[in-house]
Each structure stands twice: as structure tokens, then as C-alpha cells.
């Protein structure tokens, strides 16, 4: 379920987000839906989401120090940030990703 959207933002800032899940569980599906929604709302056109299913690629869990799923990792822009959970709290996700909400 790799899905990526790529566009260039107004100030050239590119967001690369990686979502780690373990199978298509309700939690992972919810996390992906939430993430997609938040990105569309606040980062439209300048984000890229990479979904990694650890059941298929268990060796990748180590690299980003994943122990809980779902985990969202902000690879870019630095610094690296992690958000654990199904991303149901949009406020927290925005704070976690350090995204200025669009008003």
C-alpha cells in the first residue's frame, strides 16, 4: 500500500513523511486516512507520504527505531520527529509535525 504524492511547495520546502504500520489493521488504516487528510489540509502540494508495512519489511523497523505502530516519522524537513498512534488528534499531529495550521 505504498502511496506517494509529490508536488513542490511555494517556498520549495518539501515534506517527506513515512508511516510505519503492521498490516492493514483498523489502526493503520485510520492513521493513513488521518494523515492524508491533515496533509491535504495543511501541506497540500508539498508533501510525500511513504507507507512501510513492517510485516513485509521487518528489517526496516530498526533504522527509524520503530517499536510502536502506527508511527509517523517526519524525515524532512529536519529534525526527525515521531508521532505514535492513529493520528486521530489533529492538533497534536500538527504540533508534532511542527506544521503551521493554515487559517
Amino acid at each position: 500500500m505504498t502511496d506517494a504524492q509529490k508536488t513542490t511547495g511555494e517556498n520549495g520546502e518539501k515534506w517527506i513523511l513515512r508511516l510505519y504500520v503492521a498490516g492493514q489493521t483498523p489502526k493503520s488504516l485510520a492513521a493513513f486516512a488521518n494523515l492524508k487528510r491533515i496533509c491535504e489540509e495543511h501541506l497540500a502540494g508539498r508533501y510525500e507520504i511513504e507507507v512501510i508495512d513492517l510485516l513485509e519489511h521487518p528489517q526496516l523497523a530498526r533504522g527509524d527505531q520503530i517499536f510502536a505502530v502506527p508511527t509517523l516519522v517526519r524525515k524532512l524537513p529536519p529534525p526527525l520527529r515521531k508521532i505514535i498512534g492513529d493520528l486521530s488528534n489533529t492538533e497534536k499531529v500538527l504540533v508534532g509535525l511542527d506544521v503551521q495550521p493554515r487559517r
Binding site: 503492521a22 510502536a68 505514535i84 492513529d86 486521530s88
Partner: peptide
């Protein structure tokens, strides 16, 4: 410091790492 929690999660990631 660099972890934020929001909503439901589990430790399946850890299980997968251990299993691997």
C-alpha cells in the same frame, strides 16, 4: 523528547523487530 502520542497504537513494531 522526540515522540508524540496521539490516539491508539500498539507495540507490534517491537514484536516484529524481536521476531525478525
Amino acid at each position: 523528547s522526540d515522540i508524540i502520542e496521539t490516539g491508539e497504537f500498539d507495540l507490534e513494531g517491537l514484536f516484529i523487530r524481536l521476531g525478525y
